[in-house]
Structure formats: structure tokens, C-alpha cells
Design a protein around this nucleic acid. Sequence first.
RNA 1: GGGCGCGUAGCUCAGUUGGUUAGAGCAUCUGUCUUACAAACAGAGGGUCAGAGGUUCGAGUCCUCUCGCGCCCACCA
Length: 819
Amino acid sequence: MSKEISKRYNPTETEPKWLKFWEKEGIYKYNPRAKGEVFSIDTPPPTVSGKMHIGHVYSYTHEDFIARYQKMAGRNVLFPFGTDDNGLPTERLVEKLKKVRASKMKRQDFIDLCNETLKEITPDFVADWKKIGMSCDFSRVYSTIDDDCRRTSQKFFIDLYKKQKVYRQDAPVVWCPHCQTAIAQAELEDKEAETYFNDIVFELPTNLPAGSKKNNLVIATTRPELLSSCVAIFVHPSDKRYRNLVGKKAQVPIFGNRVEIISDKKVDMKKGSGAVMCCTFGDKTDVEWFKEYKLTLAMSLDKAGRMTEKAKKYAGLSAKDARHEIIEDLKKKKLLIGQKKITHTLNVHERCKTEVEILNSEQWYVRVLDQKKKLIQLGEEIKWHPEFMQTRLGNWIKGLNWDWCISRQRFFGIPFPVWYCVKCGEAKMADEKDLPVDPLSANPKGKCEKCGGSKFIPEHDVMDTWATSSLSPVLALHLFYKEKDVEKMIPMNLRPQAHDIISTWLFYTVVRSNYHFEKIPWTEVMISGHVLDSAGRKMSKSLGNVVAPQEILEKYGADALRFWAAGRSLGQNINFSEEEIQAGKKFLTKLWNATRFVMMNINPRDLRANEKRIGTNSLYPTDKWILAELEVLVATATKSFENYDYSSSKLAIEKFFWLKLADNYIEIVKNRLYDESPKGKKGRESAQFTLYSVLFTLLRLLAPFIPFASEEIYQTFFKSAKCAKSIHLCGWPETDKKLADKEKIKTGKIIVEIVAAMRKHKAERGLSMKAELEKVEIFCDAMTKKAIQEIESDLKAVGNIRKINFIAKKNSKLRIAIQ
RNA sequence: GGGCGCGUAGCUCAGUUGGUUAGAGCAUCUGUCUUACAAACAGAGGGUCAGAGGUUCGAGUCCUCUCGCGCCCACCA
């Protein structure tokens, strides 16, 4: 071995080298016809959003551990890659990068700008995924806005239409006034806010039944600006205070219109005054009442969140300003008789944190509410890792209140392949062979199927990005398979993802797979947790605790980051800790040094030539011990990986390497390696053979976690004797039951115990570990004595002991006395 | 209010189907230049396993309740 091999492993120098090598050699290319059972992964296409963040590192490395393991275990791994780059997130990014506002630009100019911007930034964005060592096949990637995805997305939309699983309806929908589009239930977030509960006086008609004391009705509301939308007042049926008012009318203050007082059990008698104004629309209950009692529609807010003509003198004001003015006016008229400060939770749009409204508008919906039972059942058919994550999907489905709204009044997305007949309004779908199509620039073929009309207007809306990414199994498979073969590959083997998008991406994919293929999209899912800051708080720009993985990569390299990411079990959140990443780097140095030391004392070619002669049978008992331990390790690591439990695998490997191999075994046998005399040949060769095979096995066990360092070590020290061109093609170690010798494991425990006793003896006396020990007395039973005698020479060497005395007695526990 | 997860050494976490004296890393202290590694190595101290009941010969592990933390959902008049 050449002397210039450095003492310290330098990841930042090494990693780019192997990245290039893997790409050049096509190590991770997928070949559908290659041998081995296919293992297909529905990789999450990251949203192109500037830069990869630390949360990406965490969950993507998890799936990479599994992909690499599966590949080494002989499966033909399909590990595709794509990017999700349309819809609101992309629009927002482009607006920010290019300092433009989509709403102030010509539609087509903005779309062109989005496409250009994506072209500029995507390569750098994807490069980060390569840098962390993802073993995806990057030679073909999809983007959810590319031609093929647009075609696929539109094709499957038409499929939904034909199957009547998608419908268009003019109805109340959750609306973001900032983004000016409808959004889906899954895109809502909670936000705590302070507001006032206002007690407002509604005048009652004068012709009240005899005995009525009051001539007005007080209603508490947080949203006085919606007074002009008030279409009814609700009270509880058993509320004695208002019983005689049911069926009567009350006058809306300021606006003067009269609304009916209705009784309904949804009213909470204890809240406010017990009487509620129903506005179209203030909240979900209003929608329910609107539908149930067929109330009139009175929308006071427009799509931009400004007051409409309905609000008369307040028209044109923002909701916030209108609230202020109305309160002032009510005060003047002495119709506001109380204000109470409260904190309540309201729904905001997750993308822009704007308070959402409910507006009536025409949207496309995918049916999900009538499928709840079936969808829950499909969720149960999938095997979940960890299991408890399945409950989250079940709970989400149970709690759904709206069908899945997929239309967005936006610009950069996949258009609906739809026109509407001017005469009868019937939707007309595009011809499949014309896809992808933009209805704004193309015309439909043929006449209206319903009325025979020949004039059409195009659909302006685009689809929500989830409506395309929910087809990711198809998008990914289509990179490598012909369209007609795609369905045969479903269900895929694995969907990996983080827990935050169970109610969106995971759920929607199940919905689509059910409608299009009538089966689950994958047989197993693995769900990763999140990365929190070192104090366990969410990372956010406002807290200033965001960690950029790019800096960590530069400082410690990808392997150290990956090693850190493997440290917590699947599904658990992890706190970011630079110390733990440092520990990973230390592990790499230690591994490098241990290998370097071993290989300085071994000539792999000689070893190979003498392999048969040395064999495993004639090995020293100490050597059989470490091989037995290694067998246990391989079995554990394999079992854990098969169960997606990479963290147990990593922990076991780490402990074996550091505690058993480096701290003990190598220390014990190094004396045999140094002995170059003819007499020491047998012992030397036995240790060499053992060390070489242990390290090569260990290296393969570690390869999924630290692909760069394991490759560097393989290429530097092992490749001449082994044939594969990369460690990642060397295969997963096989277990060899012959070596799993339980007796030798017991012997090993005894060795470690005796060595520890000698070390303690020397440490307590401040002696060098090399210091000679005159005599060591061992109290034990006859069986143990026999076992120790087999390894006596190794023990004497490592402890520099002159003499070992045995005091063997029946049932005597092992005890060591040192002089 | 409902669901899920978590609570083990100063910190971050392991702890298989219940079974010897509850483990590791980091941190702390002490020692050692030892022909892989001083950014190393060896050793030490440090735990009522959140709390209370229960099942059991035996509970960190199983059951019930309580408390604390986190996430998701609901409530938003």
C-alpha cells in the first residue's frame, strides 16, 4: 500500500469524484429488462422552490437507504426522479425571483416566463439531490409541466370525466382572496388570531305576540362586515329565550332588509347571545344552512376580498376596512352594545397565510365524499411503515367535508382539456390524440354531443398541481415503460414521503389509482418525520433557525449528513444537531483509519491465492468469534432493512464496528499481524483472512448509508481483489450459518470482559496500556477455563501478560484478579 | 373537544415476543504519545425508566388513570 494515503478521510475532496464516476458508469441506470425482481419506488417529485432544504435531506436519504439496500440485495430497482413545477408554488417562486406579479401580466407572457425560469433554475436545484448521494436514475427525469406529463394529466382527467368521477358545479368553495383562486380543504392551515366579538342589535317587528318583553334581538359576531350577507338568523329549538320568535323576521341593522328567524340544533345556546346570523358565507355551518334551508345567496365579498355592490355604501372597501367602518356606523346608531376581545382560530391558505373566504363559484371537483369507505379500506390494504401513520390517513378521510376541488383560477398549470357549448353549456372534452392541448389556443373537434351546437368557449382554469402529481406512479413508470405496460407495473412497491403530505399527495394518489386502475398505487409506504431545530422547534425564517444543507455538505460532506439522517427511526422527527453530524464524520475517519491499518498489514493478492488453504475451519477462536458476531450483524441488518427499519440497521453496524471490531478485535489481533516470523505465520494469516472478510462485509453493509466513503475505501483497498466496478454492485452480504457459532459469541464476551478488566487495572494505576502484567488470575468454571485457554495467546499479547493462572471451580462465576 | 405520537443519564436517543447488574453517543472528570486513528485511546462518575394504580414469580416493556410536550383535525356564529 502506498504511503501517501492520508490519515484523515476527506469527504469534500472524495465525494464529487465518485459522483462523476457513478454517472459516467451508469451505476444507477434502470433497465426494465435487467435480471432481478423489480422493486419500484414512487419517488416524491420535489417542488422546485429555490433550494433543497434540510427536511428534504432527511426524508430523501431515508428512501435512498432502502433503494440502495434493495439494489444490493439483488432487486432491479426502479428509482425514478421528477420535479413538481407548476401551480401556485411555482408561480410564487417566479414572481419572487423575477419581481413580477402574475395578475399584472399577459397570461402567455407569464407562462413563458415561468418556463424560462424553470429552465434556468432546475439543473442547480436537482444537483443538490445528486450531491446527497441519491441513487435515482437521473438520466431520464420528469417534470410535472413537461409535454408528457401534461398529456398524461389531461388524458386521465378525461378518463375521470368519462367515468363520471369528476364534475363541475356552481357552489360555495373555499377561496383565497390573495391568490384569487379556489383551493382544496387540504390546503388549509390553522392560525390563531385576536378579534372582537361584537354584540349587534337586530330590531324586531312591532307586531310581536303578547307577553314579549323585548323589541330587539342581540347577535354576537366576529364578522360585522358580513351584515349585508345575512340571510337568516338561527336559534336553538329548545332555547326558551327565543322560542316565540321562530318564524318571525328581524331587521338587519344598517341595511334594513328583513331575515327570517329559524330554529336549528347546530346552534350553540351558550355561545354569544345564543342567536346567530347566517351569512353567505361566513363559515362551513352557513354553507350547510344555505343548502338545507335553500336560503338566498348574498355575497358581500368578491374574489379579491373586496366588498361588492351588495354591501352598498361599503362597496369597494377591503373586508378589514369595511369591518372598521361598519362598527363605527353601528356605534353611531347605538346598535353596537358590546365588544369582547377573543382569540380564535381561523383557516388560512397554507401557501400565503391569507385568511380564506367561502365564495360561490363554478369549479371542477373530483368525487371523494361518496368514496370514503372504499378509500379507507384501500388505505388499510397498503402496508405502512411505521404502522401508526395509517391512522392519519383514516382520520383525514373520515373528516373530509368537501369533494376535491381541482380547478384553479391561475395561469401556470396544466389546462383542462375542455370547452363549453355556448348554446347548452355542456362540457366538451378534447380528443385524446390531440393531447396535450391548450383550449385557449385550440378549437374542439366536432359538435356538442348534447345539443349539436358548434360554438364553444374554452375553459380558462388550470388544474391544481396535485391533480397531476397524484398521477406520479404513471408519470414515473412512463419514463421507462410504454404506455400500455404502465398499468401492469401498478401497484408499485413503495411510496416514500414525509408525513406532512399524507392528506394531499398520498391521499390523492390513492383516489386516482382507485378510479383509473381500481387498485392501490403501491403495496407499501414509508413515512419520514420532520427536521426541527436543535431545541425541537419548527424551522422557520421568522425564527431564524433554518439550517442550509448546502453549508453542512460543504463542511462535513454528504455521508456525514446521511449518517445523521439514519439516526432516528422511521416516522420520528429529528432535532438538527451539528455535533451529531460531526460524530458521523468521525465515524468515517475511524472507518478509513481502521481499513488503512488493516490493509497495511495485508496483501490482498496473497490472501486470495491462499484463501483455500487458510479456509474458515482452521481459524483462531478469536477470529471465529468476530466472524460469528459479523453473522449476527448481517442477519440483523438484513432483517431491519427488509422491514424499512434502516435506523436499527445503522445502529447495529455502528456498534459492531466501533465497540467490537475497532475497540476489541483489532486491538487483540494486531500483535499477530506484527509477528512476521515463520512461527507466527498461521496466526497472522488467520487474522489477515478474518480482517479482510470482515471489513469487506462491513463495507457492503455500510454502503447504503455512506455511499461515498464506502466507494472510496472499496476503490482504494479492495477493488484489485474483487471484480465489481463499484461497491454498489458488489451485492448484499449473504449469511453463512456455518459461521454463526453461539459458543464463540460467548467466548467473545469473556475475551472482552478480561480485556476490560486489564484495561481498568492499568487505567486506575495510570499505567500505559502497554505495561506488562506479571500475573492474572482467573476464577471460573471448567468450561470457561477451556474456552479461555483456547484464546490464551491472544489475551497474553493484548494485555502484555506474563502468566495466566486459572482457579477453576464448579459454578464459579468469572472473576479476574490482576497483580 | 377528537385522533396520533412522545416522556429512559446533564443533552440526543437505543432498549426485540415481559426475564441476570437498564445501554450508546455527546458533555463532564481522570489517565495514556499505545508501530490505524491525540479531531485518538483507556477508565470513571451520572438513571425512583414522567407520576399513580393494576396484571405477573418477575414490568422501562402489558392494562387503567393522571400530568407534561409535539403534530394533525374540529371548534371559528
